[in-house]
């Protein structure tokens, strides 16, 4: 029994030792393979981050072959006595075309209140490809007591939007601005908000 068994043991040991060496090499092979894999499959975060810096190219071309579902979401911070929401909840849009949608805001209180909307896009990877050409979120909004107003938004989805994104959500959170901030010079805060957009 011992004789043939020794041979088997030796063979198995050598095979397993080879496997260990192979996997150690695999770790190092990952260095070039990882870059390659990311370029081919777009698994890489860096490509997206790089795209974020450039922003969408406004080419004027409309991609009729794709329909992207846009969902609108609205939240009002409890410190703001307003009702706020989109006129329509979802839209199907072609990338490259400019669309408009109205949000409606009304002040439930009797006094004049100023608020500011903070936008966000989900999934966040779509953020650089969603451009707002006109938006109430660019400036602070003041509503007099019981006033109701339409707030227009004009937007476009870039044709460069990655193919894997088929729907996205634009969400607004309306926040109350403190009385002190209302009095501040508008130009001071505007660049910061523009940077968010």
């Amino acid at each position: 029994m011992a004789a043939d068994n020794q041979g088997n043991k030796k063979r198995t040991t050598l095979l397993l030792g080879g496997l260990v060496a192979l996997m150690f090499g695999f770790g190092f092979a990952m260095v070039p393979l990882y870059d390659l894999l990311c370029q081919v499959t777009g698994t890489q975060s860096i490509a997206i981050r790089a795209g974020m810096g450039k922003g969408p190219a406004v080419t004027g071309e409309i991609d009729k072959s794709r329909l992207i579902t846009i969902k609108f979401d609205a939240t009002v911070n409890p410190n703001l006595p307003w009702d706020f929401g989109p006129e329509i909840r979802t839209m199907k849009v072609h990338p490259g075309e400019i669309y408009a949608v109205n949000f409606v805001a009304s002040n439930r209180s009797n006094s004049s209140v100023t608020g500011q909307a903070i936008p966000s896009v989900a999934p966040w990877q779509a953020t650089p490809y969603f451009s707002k050409l006109e938006c109430f979120c660019f400036t602070r909004q003041t509503l007099k007591g019981n006033e109701r107003t339409d707030m227009p938004l004009r937007f476009m989805v870039s044709p460069d939007l990655p193919a894997e994104i088929r729907s996205l959500t634009l969400s607004y959170s309306f926040m109350r601005l403190k009385p002190g901030q209302e009095a501040e010079n508008e130009t001071q805060t505007l660049p910061a908000i523009a940077a968010i957009n």
Binding site: L16, L19, V20, A21, M23, F24, G25, F26, G27, F28, M30, V31
Partner: peptide, 14 residues
């Protein structure tokens, strides 16, 4: 263990 430990060893070696 044989499949993954060498990869960690490679990682910490790097």
């Amino acid at each position: 263990l044989i499949l993954v430990v060498p990869v960690l060893a490679g990682g910490v070696t790097m």
